[in-house]
């Protein structure tokens, strides 16, 4: 029972990070039908800013804010430079553009910074453990759960209570009508990218805290997880992204915990098997987006 509770907590903590990652993809997809595979490189940008800040002994909270800000700026910049000129292209061209942005950024990091990982040492307090009755939780996993909850709450407030948030929700349902209402398309799209960049920055801080370093190719695994999670949840649906993130995290942890040792090397195959089952059962994802737009 204790083992199960502990694994459940592990699953929620991992699912939280995946949810944040998937949300970053979903925010952009819901508006411009782009699966931004350069999302991972936005995380890498945030990681390098953390690295530089910690190198120069900037206090951690300021470093984290700077990292999130940098990712948001980088996201808006990629939108302006790469995605805006492709605005009228079909979703496949957009996706290929995002691959190109991702590849270019990776090579820039490798040749401009270093191909080797750069250490991001965090204060020792952050590697502590808290005990809750029979279960233990590390500071970083606990922080991921709290940060995920806070980010979800803030995002919901933003989308429901602010003009820009409402405009973004409207854009997700019908972009043409939104423009007819006199809302400037460029501003909504730029805001969506910046928001997605902020989410990338938040998840980067959690991701880097776990790994202790930043390297040029760091963004690949998280963006893959985010993609799987948002497909399970329903592409372009924000609540779907959250549900997909948690479903993926829970499946990964439970298979790792309960598969027999001989089957463990095939854990990812089992997880992806579940993904296929979910998609057979609900082809549009757990919570489909309202528009039904697909790439």
């Amino acid at each position: 029972m204790e083992f199960f509770l502990q694994q459940l907590l592990n699953a929620v903590s991992l699912g939280g990070i995946y949810a944040l990652l998937a949300l970053g993809l979903a925010v952009v997809f819901s508006i411009v039908a782009l699966i931004n595979f350069a999302h991972g490189e936005l995380m890498t940008v945030a990681g390098y800013v953390l690295f530089v800040c910690i190198l120069y002994a900037v206090p951690l909270p300021i470093a984290v804010v700077a990292a999130i800000g940098a990712a948001a700026v980088a996201a808006a910049a990629t939108e302006r430079l790469a995605f805006r000129p492709m605005r009228r292209a079909d979703p496949t061209s957009l996706m290929l553009t995002s691959f190109a942005v991702s590849a270019i950024l990776k090579v820039l990091f490798q040749n401009g910074i270093s191909a080797r990982p750069k250490p991001v040492p965090l204060p020792p307090e952050l590697s502590g453990t808290l005990t809750f009755g029979p279960v233990r939780l590390g500071t970083v996993p606990l922080a991921s759960i709290l940060v995920t909850c806070l980010s979800l709450a803030a995002l919901t407030l933003f989308l429901k209570r602010t003009v820009m948030g409402k405009a973004m929700r409207a854009a997700a349902e019908d972009f043409q009508v939104l423009r007819l209402m006199g809302i400037r398309a460029n501003r909504v799209i730029a805001a969506a990218f910046a928001l997605s960049g902020m989410l990338a920055g938040i998840s980067a801080a959690l991701w880097v805290a776990q790994r202790g370093s930043v390297d040029p190719l760091m963004g690949f695994v998280p963006v893959l997880k985010a993609f799987v999670a948002s497909v399970i949840g329903g592409l372009g649906s924000l609540s779907g992204a959250v549900a997909g993130g948690f479903a993926l995290g829970i499946a990964e942890v439970l298979f790792q915990a309960y598969l027999p040792e001989a089957a463990l090397p095939f854990r990812d195959a089992f997880v992806l098997g579940v993904v296929i089952l979910i998609l057979l059962w609900r082809p549009d994802g757990l919570i489909p987006a309202k528009t039904g737009r697909r790439s």
Partner: peptide, 29 residues
């Protein structure tokens, strides 16, 4: 980090892949 967080104290043997500044940057653990 996860291992020490779970309260496991057994010593660790690793290979040349961890010969990088990241490992020494992990602090007391």
């Amino acid at each position: 980090k996860a291992l020490r967080g779970a309260g496991v104290t057994a010593p660790i043997l690793g290979s040349d892949g961890i010969d990088s500044p990241t490992t020494t940057g992990l602090g007391d653990i």
